[in-house]
């Protein structure tokens, strides 16, 4: 698994000696470095200026659509219907917080915001706890069939969740929990586990054996070792997993669409139901979509390194 070395490339190159190539850490260094990579040759050929201009344009291409949504959310439905969001740059008087004020007065929407939190937080916590226990067993306990069982988990990583929609809906119907928040949370736990176990097991397995043996020699109980040795050492991996899982559940639409009802629906589903009248509901949709993005964006910028690590670990390895 080179996955754990990847965040280096996300620009946070801090840990030295992680990547095989020492030049990797120097990616941000300017001229004069000994490494002559493909990139540097192309830069030399086309002129650094041209590449920089292209990259600025590309960065704008990535930023401007989001900016467009943000500005649209600050304009009245009439303004949005009359002209594009960019006209607000010339006439800032169009800017108003009315859409947000209306949205926060809308109990259906604020309810869905709380539902999102009530679904996301427990789902994340449960996944981390269950996966950490299982990952510890896969990494450091011995039992018959361990390797085969773990290969099974690896195989389950790619199972499309569509497979479970009909069967689980039937079980939920029989149990009478169809539509409530618990049913949504449990589904996320089920489908989050293979990846969570996979990520943590690979990390735990890399903890130096001596550390564990020493703790066992000292007569530590297995659960104490798990709590006192593994969990603290596994901090970064657990953080990656928690952040990745948090955003995954926060952003989900499909599971909510099938299993949540009107009273337990998260923001994504509440907004989706407005999409049918996109033009007419642009005030609710734009402001709501932006509100639903704020938490993920904060999490992303605050814990960028961990999130990238989590996403990268999700790549087929």
């Amino acid at each position: 698994m080179s996955g754990d070395g990847v965040p280096e490339a996300a620009g946070q190159g801090t840990a030295p000696g992680t990547a095989p190539a020492p030049g990797a850490g120097g990616a941000g260094v300017g001229e004069g470095a000994p490494r002559r990579s493909v990139g540097s040759r192309i830069v030399g050929r086309l002129g650094s200026g041209a590449v920089q201009v292209v990259l600025v344009l590309l960065a704008l291409f990535w930023l401007v659509p989001t900016l467009g949504l943000f500005i649209a959310s600050l304009r009245s439905p009439q303004d949005n219907a009359a002209a594009g969001w960019w006209t607000a740059l010339a006439s800032p008087s169009q800017i108003t917080l009315e859409n947000y004020a209306n949205l926060l007065d809308n109990e259906a929407f604020t309810g869905s915001f709380w539902n999102t939190i009530l679904i996301t937080v427990p789902a994340t916590v449960i996944i981390v706890v269950i996966a950490a226990l299982a990952a510890y067993a896969f990494a450091w306990l011995e039992f018959p069939g361990r390797d085969w069982l773990f290969l099974g988990v690896v195989g389950l990583l790619v199972v499309p969740l569509q497979v479970a929609l009909v069967p689980i809906a039937q079980i939920y119907g029989a149990l009478g929990i169809f539509g409530n928040i618990v049913s949504v949370v449990l589904f996320h736990v089920g489908f989050g586990l293979p990846f969570a176990i996979f990520l943590l097991r690979n990390f735990f397995a890399a903890i130096p054996r001596d550390l564990l043996e020493a703790a066992r020699m000292d007569g530590g109980k297995e659960f104490t070792i798990f709590r006192r040795v593994i969990l603290p050492l596994g901090g970064p991996a657990i953080a990656s997993l928690a952040i990745f899982q948090f955003l995954w559940v926060w952003n989900d639409l499909l599971v909510a669409l099938v299993f949540a009802d009107q009273t337990s629906q998260p923001m994504t589903r509440a907004l989706q139901s407005e999409m049918r009248q996109f033009g007419a509901n642009i005030d609710v949709i734009s402001a709501g979509a932006f509100l639903s993005m704020i938490v993920p964006l904060i999490v992303f910028f605050a814990f960028q390194r961990y999130f990238v690590q989590g996403v990268m670990a999700g790549a087929v390895k």
């Binding site: 590309l58 639409l253 994504t268 993005m293």
Partner: peptide
Amino acid sequence: ERIRWSTAFKIVVFMPMAISFLASGVI
């Protein structure tokens, strides 16, 4: 690879991974 502000560029391009497909779809 050799651009001084590559980190900023990568963050900008990676950002959509953090938001929901719903939000990307609305955008």
